[in-house]
């Protein structure tokens, strides 16, 4: 039965102020039930304050074969990391 239902990706916001994080996927016939199912499957241990679901088929992913052109060039751009600043002690851990 569940194989006839579309797959949904589930994102949970763990606390106010944090971003929604991808936690997994599940099957459901529509968005409303996907939210209910996500509540039951992924928030049983008090993990969440908000749920997003999106049809897995609606997600566009980068192609693994494009990995080289997409990501390799940034390997050698060390100056893009903000590691050249002196951080005052009062700021604490960043």
């Amino acid at each position: 039965m569940s194989s006839e239902w579309p797959l949904w990706e589930v994102f949970i916001r763990g606390q106010h102020g944090l971003n929604h994080r991808h936690v997994g996927s599940l099957h459901a016939p529509d968005a409303e039930m996907a939210i209910n199912n996500a509540r039951d499957v992924y928030t049983r241990r008090n993990e969440g304050v908000s749920i997003w679901v999106v049809r897995s088929s609606e997600i566009t992913a980068s192609a693994p074969s494009e990995k080289g052109p997409l990501f390799d060039p940034s390997n050698s751009k060390v100056y893009r990391h903000p590691t050249f600043f002196d951080i005052p002690d009062e700021v604490g851990h960043m």
């Binding site: 569940s2 599940l26 459901a28 199912n37 049983r44």
Partner: peptide, 12 residues
Amino acid sequence: SPALEEDIALAN
């Protein structure tokens, strides 16, 4: 249950 999701929901 007929689906994993329903199984967990019913157990809850």
